[in-house]
Simulated scan of single mutants.
Amino acid sequence: MPPQPSIMTIGNFDGFHRGHQHILALAKSLADKHDDKLIAITFDPHPIAILNPGKTPTRLTTIERRIELLKAAGATEVVVLKPTRQLLAESPEQFVQQIVDQYHPIAFVEGADFRFGHERAGDINLLRQLAEQYNFTVHTPDTLNITLTNNHIAPVRSSLIRWLIGQGRVADAAVSLGHPYTLTASVVRGAQMGRKIGFPTINLCNGHTAAFQLPLHGVYAGTATFPHLPDQIFTAAISVGLKPTFENKQKQLFIEAYLLDTDLDLYDKTVHLSFTAWIRDQLAFSSVDDLIAQMHRDVAQVRCFALKNRHEPLAVTALQSQSDSR
């Protein structure tokens, strides 16, 4: 029996942003048309982690979440390749031949900036040349642009999303991703200073977040969900930074969240902490009382934001995406 033909798409897919979703939508339509498999190939870790570890980009998603999102978008199978030096040394032609031999593609769906093979020497034009040799087609959807809150129009890129998050522009990151940016980590015990001043927080394990893109130091509105509480979404006031009002000689980074209207014991649980809106810069207050007064204002602002957005997708519906067909 001949092998089932497949539709292929290859990429890092970190964050699985709206540009990636655009590519998967076209690939799925091709697969559905002829009842073919849709195979998505991704890499873990990022190839740069092998070739130039000092320049490894920060992550936007765990590999588990990436697989989950790719499958939800229609991938029949997700193949995770470990980018060994042997694999990264393959010429573009060798890489494509390996894919053809193993997966029997009848079509590739890739962005116009797709690169592959040793030193990223292969591009979409070479892939089209190889298509004639191996009898597959190549499809490149129009570049997907998004309109940011400052009305700037930009193509969706993982690098842009990392920059936006690093600037504290989490609402724009959510527009680009199609969902709020989320960090996943275990809840660990802190100094319990928040509990002493009336705002008990959950603290994220720094070891779990070290490889991920962290938002600019500041206070954010967001949500928290927990795998062991699948039906509950908690509104959260999130702080990222060095807790400058308190002594922090080691300059330790803290990512902590005050969950509104709950007092559950969540230590050692896994949390998905999502950032939906910027509230303010992180500040050093002259007294704890001043800090407490500001935290009351922060929580009121977070609550107002949550009530305003509870009937619509967070930070996404007000802005528009568009395809560049020029």
Rank of each mutant, 00 (worst) to 15 (best):
K33S: 01
S159R: 01
N12F: 11
F199G: 03
T235S: 07
P230D: 10
L266I: 07
T184A: 03
L266Q: 05
S91F: 11
Q4V: 08
L24S: 08
L24P: 00
F212T: 02
L164G: 01
R120W: 13
R189G: 09
W163L: 03
G122Q: 11
V288F: 04
Q320D: 14
V188G: 02
F13T: 00
R18T: 11
S325Q: 15
D263C: 07
R303T: 09
H118L: 07
P141Y: 14
L87H: 06
Y103G: 02
P200Q: 10
G194Q: 05
A75T: 11
P92F: 10
D113G: 11
L69H: 04
L60W: 09
H118G: 03
E110W: 01
N52Y: 09
Q129C: 08
L88I: 07
E256S: 09
G222D: 06
L264G: 10
N206G: 11
A237G: 03
S325Y: 14
L127V: 04
E247P: 07
E132P: 00
L259A: 02
H179K: 11
H34G: 06
P45Q: 01
G190C: 01
A277N: 14
F13W: 10
E77I: 12
N151G: 00
R59Q: 09
Q133P: 01
D231M: 01
H17F: 05
N125D: 15
I124V: 14
G117R: 09
D298L: 06
V80M: 14
V299Y: 07
V79A: 12
Q232R: 13
Q94N: 14
M1I: 02
L130Y: 02
R195H: 11
R297F: 12
D289C: 04
A185C: 04
R310V: 14
F43I: 05
T76I: 11
D263H: 15
L291G: 06
R128F: 05
K308F: 09
L260T: 02
I161R: 04
H118T: 09
V170W: 02
H217R: 07
V170S: 06
H228M: 08
K28Q: 10
L160H: 03
T147E: 15
V271C: 10
N145V: 12
D268V: 00
V96W: 07
A107G: 12
N151C: 06
E132H: 13
